[in-house]
Design a protein around this nucleic acid. Structure first.
Lengths: 132, 132, 132, 132
DNA sequence: GTGGTCTAGACCACC
DNA sequence: GTGGTCTAGACCACC
């Protein structure tokens, strides 16, 4: 199973489901058109309540990651740019700054953070079977 | 004032204070030995409950960013590596991966994220008066 | 084909069929006496379950838009005022008010909504080949 | 009370709360900075479950209509244009077209719909104490 | 005090 | 079968 949820995490469980699906899409594990498990099916696999999974699916639909076909099921959507791209890019910038601040207090230089990012990118690419 | 707090932010107020102080240290606005405002003083300036500021100071002390000298006040500590560095570096890596996943859903390439990081670094360095 | 249906729409599929037929009539694409495709035929063209199309036809019959001649087929009815006109006019008024409220939150003035309505009317008239 | 909810309506109750608050803002009954009742307080007044009201408040926050001050309460936000204005304006246009189609089947002319809209506008303005 | 999350279980519309 | 809504009631973090 490509999705796991940790009830002890400070992150809400529905958010973990959202992030897990987004991550699987980014990694190519889930492709546009792929069917997601039904709400109740996934809730049983993750031993979550169906409401929790439903909330995650609604969030993913609003984010344009999945499409709900009424009465038929839920599918990965063709990727498209969300309406609020610029807002969210600014948000990413602020998070990067926050990471740099944290890194400074761990005595990491900015170059080391850049190197860390490159390493994560490399790992993701290998996961996808890309080489370079 | 080098510290601002937004009550509408999803981030808890005490966390904003923690991040604000860490950021001021990372940017060189606050230096080891500098005295921080007293809890009640800061809570009035930021119109926060004093418990909120006290909680932030406790957090900062645990993180080794400040030192509380009972009866004298609170000071920025000499920078030192905290005990749980490796744990927290792993945490940073996970956050970088999460940012890359988000970026993918904004149609940003991994190279663009790297470029964004370099830009943030450049901005921080200029703020510190460094050039290059 | 003058009828399209989107499974990803929040609107139920049968409702989309109902609205599509009503719209075709309003635009003059379908005229009184015109024969509609048989339920099974239309369900195949739209790749819908035949129950879904049957439900739409029942709705259209109740609304007085079509007439079902058992054994012969389904036809566009001569236009006549339905029994519950006043109720439904009140419903339209409530929808217009809801639109004005939404528009307010998009910073549109009431005059801009009126202008938008006039534009939609103009477009519909041009579609019908009317000029003025 | 400026808010009512009808459990027999086809509209979900949380949506009725959302529309009710938006409407009160559009009519000037609620002004930026005004405090909304606490989730549990409002849920008791409307004899709804607190989860239902919480869902409505979350929707309103996402729409930028209200602001949640953590631990303090919920307030009407200063009005600002949402990120997806254009999408939502297109949505309004489609709804206006749907209304014109419905009106046609009630034997209303397009001019009569325009007049109906003007009347609704007039009523709203009078409600606000504007004259003209 | 405030809002947010979660389970358990019922009920509904749609396909 | 599918997802969406709702109640009842517990628990949590934040202020």
């Amino acid at each position: 199973m490509w999705l796991h949820v940790d009830p002890r995490s400070p992150q809400p469980m529905y958010q973990q489901v959202v992030d897990g699906v987004k991550s699987a899409v980014a990694k190519g594990i889930l492709q546009p058109g792929d069917k997601l498990p039904a709400v109740r099916e996934l809730s049983m696999e993750l031993t979550l309540n169906h409401n929790t999974v439903a909330k995650a699916y609604q969030e993913l639909e609003r984010a344009g990651v999945i499409e709900v076909w009424r009465g038929r099921g839920t599918f990965i959507a063709a990727s498209k740019v969300p309406a609020d791209v610029n807002e969210r890019k600014n948000e990413l910038e602020r998070e990067l700054e926050r990471i740099l601040v944290e890194a400074h207090h761990l005595q990491m230089s900015e170059d080391e953070v850049e190197e860390m990012l490159r390493q994560v990118v490399r790992r993701l690419r290998e996961g996808r079977g890309e080489h370079a």
